[in-house]
């Protein structure tokens, strides 16, 4: 769940059309197009999640975050049989109550509920839960892992760098590396994760 209390706004006089804002917006809310002598930057306020990525990366400092009427991005977990939520979380190797986003406080169960509600892509999950609208860094893999374990396939937009791909988890570390590098304690960390994932869900 994330409260959105700011929206991006562009000063088109400063914009040089580099499209960085388009590339870092987690929900594709920004479109930059070239007009005759200047650039037109269209920011969809219905999609803007107030993450500040565009403001922080614009090389021309052309974007400002302005206060908006606050609203909340969230998906109601209770609309589904919790067993379905639990099953998808554990298949993704998360405990349902485990945090997947430190910034917004989004938990695994909410990502599962959003997918059960029809979210099919990373940007759809951001819009449905607010995940990824904080630092935009650490929840990257939980988002991709959830979509993959739900059996969803989706393609990265060419020239885009909102996300690249899912990476390895500790369960997939080859045995040769586990044996060669005991100081990293892959096996013990995997056991720790397994204890977390299989912990009961308290009401």
């Amino acid at each position: 769940m994330k409260m959105v209390n700011v929206h991006a706004s562009v000063n088109e006089e400063l914009c040089k059309g580099c499209k960085t804002c388009e590339m870092v917006c987690p929900v594709y809310a920004i479109r930059v197009s070239k007009q005759e002598k200047e650039f037109d930057v269209d920011i969809d306020p219905k999609r803007c999640v107030g993450c500040w990525n565009c403001e922080q990366r614009c090389p021309e400092h052309a974007i400002e975050m302005k206060p908006c009427e606050p609203y909340v991005l969230s998906t109601d977990v209770t609309q589904f049989d919790y067993k379905e939520i639990e099953a998808l979380c554990r298949k993704t190797r998360f405990h349902p109550k485990q945090l997947v986003c430190y910034c917004t406080g989004t938990r695994a169960e909410e990502l599962a509920a959003a997918i059960l509600s029809g979210a099919r892509t990373p940007d759809a999950l951001v819009l449905a839960t607010g995940v990824g609208a904080g630092c935009g860094i650490e929840c990257n893999q939980p988002i991709l892992r959830f979509l993959e374990s739900a059996g969803l396939s989706f393609e990265r937009k060419k020239q885009s760098f909102q996300w690249y791909g899912r990476t390895i988890t500790v369960w997939e570390v080859p045995s040769s590396l586990r044996e060669e590098f005991p100081v990293f304690r892959f096996g013990e960390d995997q056991e720790l994760f397994d204890r977390i994932i299989n912990a009961p869900v308290e009401p």
């Binding site: 997947v100 650490e138 990257n140 892992r145 390895i168 500790v170 990293f184 960390d189």
Partner: peptide, 20 residues
């Protein structure tokens, strides 16, 4: 590193294994 790698470190690998 990109956010994928950082997220791998902080979410996928465990508190000690991540350092690999």
């Amino acid at each position: 590193a990109r956010c994928e790698t950082r997220s791998t470190y902080h979410m996928n690998m465990g508190p000690r294994g991540a350092n690999f």
